[in-house]
């Protein structure tokens, strides 16, 4: 007799995992409302800002209208953070998909 039980059990397990995790915003969907690029601060200043946080920068890039940073904190934790390109304010930080910091009043969906 054919059975489709293993996939169903696995789906239930995956659903359980998803429910246990606190949902975060997909990184491609974070919006910073940063306006025209000629008003943005240069990446070099962003690097200084990351250094001032006590983080070790791995990679910095433009993601949508935000600056996105991959870095490690002093505890060696891998972080993904979004900064406002004009103010360089730290807006939101994820650790392996889990949100661990959000600036007061910031809505990542814009």
């Amino acid at each position: 007799m054919k059975t489709i039980r293993p996939p169903l059990v696995a789906f239930a397990a995956a659903l359980g995992c998803a429910l246990m995790a606190s949902p975060a915003q997909a990184d491609g969907e974070v919006t910073c409302n940063s306006g025209p690029k000629d008003k943005w601060k240069p990446m070099a200043e962003l690097r200084k800002k990351v250094w001032a946080e006590g983080w070790q920068l791995e990679k910095a890039l433009v993601q949508g209208d935000c600056y996105e940073v991959y870095a490690r904190n002093e505890a060696g934790q891998v972080l993904e953070a979004f900064f406002h390109p004009v103010t360089l304010k730290k807006l939101i930080v994820y650790r392996r998909g889990q949100e661990i910091f959000r600036a007061k009043g910031f809505d990542p969906a814009g």
Partner: peptide
């Protein structure tokens, strides 16, 4: 070999939980 089904779904969950996409 059916363990692969569970591994596949967990791999997708791993992907989803890291990217939220």
């Amino acid at each position: 070999q059916r363990l692969v089904y569970a591994a596949f779904v967990l791999a997708l969950a791993h992907w989803l939980l890291l990217d939220w996409n």
